[in-house]
Design a protein around this nucleic acid. Structure first.
Lengths: 344, 344
DNA sequence: TTAAACTAGTTAAACGTTTAACTTATTGAT
DNA sequence: ATCAATAAGTTAAACGTTTAACTAGTTTAA
């Protein structure tokens, strides 16, 4: 004995109105009087009615689904960076009564470009691309003329909507924090300077120094490692201290580099923060387990997802074709790896 | 100039058949001759036609969506355990032309039980529950009479479909591996013995020893820590070696414990694997970075997701009401933390 | 030879909404 | 007093499928 689905007809009957009226109430149409509205709303509640998604999308041509695309290795990274962005997207989508469909694509695509199924099946109203995906895939996706926003990934040869974090501001507030603690000789430990994020962080660093009228010392800006990981953080710190002895603070371009640098300092009996203050960037989980816990710039991953969805929905609704850049601010998280510098 | 959607009508027209015929071809109905079928298939390809999901589900009452529920902390865990299960589910769902909708629920639910939206909205044909969720939520979910399978989570007071890993087998093959390497005095480092998984691993350990006719020595079975983490692994190892000196191998109930034990051994200048062979369980990513890399039991997380979806789809299709248990086998991964024991 | 049984399709209703176009009653302006 | 404008609904078509019931032609069985 299947219990039949409760439809708009049942609601209409119980509220003594036409099904059109019920529909208009559901869609918050102003044409319905307050009395009728509450009567209908009541019937909906009593009957525990939920409109059929399929019937709705059949006529409205909206699926109320959003696609979320990332590479499988991004999704599976130990550090839950993109997972958090996805979760933020999922949250914001839910608030707007959207569902999000995930598709992972392979990082290397030998066997041609693989367009996620929901794109050509028309199962989504828009898509979010998180992190770097193969260039060809992006171009293919753009051809579909489907609303699309990229998050934490930017190519400046194409113009499309994008949500990014404010790397320049991050570099600035990290450096300003150290300046406020009386540090003058602040080193920058960067990885690959060609990476746009790192370049921006360096810009922030430099502009904070300039604003404080401190001359930029290129000798304590280390940007020759290919990739910003722990090992290179360690090596960069060594390089730094082999050639300089008046540095009192370090701004590392990410937490991994900072952790590596911290290890170097520990190995050489240099105390953090008594001898050297240290600031990272990203706010990865491991930071809390460090001794001392790392002062860093928090990247609001959840927010990135939230903003991406907000922006995407805006595009879907307004057909807003101007592809702006949304820059999400970052935040300074003060822990114990930084302290005031006293001139001895 | 919106380009109109290509519908079944267009295909029918082009293939010179009725729309019913097209539908029957799409659904692989045997009533259609081979000639007509290929004619239709051809039209579909030429026109690049994809059936409208909403129209399909409106009449078929199937959404072709699967719900995936886990707690937010499980989803955000640094170690991508549930993320992998989710990905496996996503893969298998895609292969069967399903989409999966994710919902995270809060671990502690002060404000009443929170049923994911897709459940009462009827947006999914079935749901997968991954990992432990609040008991009340599970009971509420079961009330909906919607097809449901739990993965990596089991309560033996309720009877429902479940996909689990074979902990007993895992305990056995881990122990047998050590036995094959000539070890006789093999310790077991367990956390909370009340946890069903750990209890099962111990059962596997014991039965392997019995099969090899080796007497079980309760003194080298350490199961008094509340939780199997690194610290407790370290402490358990200390406890073990404080009271025993003939142990030549350790089977730790999970990798975290193993890593803790390895640290203890390192701190006490006991060499792995020369002095002590060590086997873990789980195969977490960190194992590869260890020195030496850890021999362990791999839990096939992707497979867990795959199996859960397979099972769920089976239930959806066959209305199979017998709620069986699916046990996914685990695999021994031999790295460098184990080696042959030579009697000196 | 004839009826029954297949085979390979077609017709048309149904699924549960939205929405343009219509209706009817009320209000406002002149 | 008259007509236009507004308010608050209703009617009915449309969205793109599936599928039960039907049809017409061909085989099979006795």
């Amino acid at each position: 004995m299947e219990k039949a689905r409760i439809t708009i007809k049942d609601v209409a009957k119980r509220a003594n109105v036409s099904i059109a009226t019920v529909s208009l109430v559901i869609n918050n149409n102003a044409r319905i009087s307050k009395t009728t509205r509450t009567k209908v709303l009541n019937a909906i509640k009593v009957l525990n009615y939920y409109p059929s998604k399929s019937a709705q999308s059949l006529v409205s041509k909206k699926t109320r689904n959003l696609g979320f695309i990332l590479t499988d290795d991004h999704f599976l990274r130990t550090e839950p960076f993109y997972t958090r962005i996805f979760l933020g997207a999922e949250f914001e989508a839910g608030r707007n009564e959207y569902y999000v469909l995930l598709a992972t694509v392979k990082t290397d695509y030998n066997e041609g470009v693989q367009i996620p199924r929901f794109v050509f099946e028309g199962s989504v109203d828009g898509i979010i691309i998180a992190g770097k995906i193969p260039t060809e895939l992006l171009s293919e996706l753009l051809k579909f003329k489907i609303p699309l926003v990229c998050v934490d990934f930017y190519r400046n040869d194409i113009d499309y909507p994008v949500v990014l974090i404010d790397n320049i501001q991050g570099g600035m507030i990290a450096t300003e924090h150290l300046l406020n603690l009386n540090h003058k000789n602040i080193a920058f430990l960067g990885g690959d300077i060609n990476h746009p994020s790192i370049a921006d962080r360096l810009i922030g660093y430099k502009s904070a120094l300039q604003k404080a009228n401190i001359k930029i010392n290129e000798n304590i800006i280390i940007t020759n490692s290919p990739y910003p990981n722990r090992q290179n953080g360690y090596d960069s710190a060594r390089l730094l201290f082999d050639n300089n002895n008046d540095v009192t603070a370090i701004f590392a371009c990410n937490d991994a580099m900072a952790i590596g640098a911290m290890q170097y300092l520990k190995d050489n009996n240099i105390y953090v923060p008594q001898d050297i203050s240290l600031v990272g960037f990203d706010d990865v989980e491991a930071n809390l387990l460090l001794d001392p816990p790392l002062t860093t710039i928090r990247v609001p991953k959840i927010d990135l997802g939230v903003e991406a969805v907000k922006y995407l929905i805006e595009i879907i609704n307004n057909k807003n074709t101007t592809s702006k850049k949304i820059i999400v601010p970052v935040e300074l998280i003060i822990r114990n790896s930084t302290s005031e510098h006293y001139i001895k």
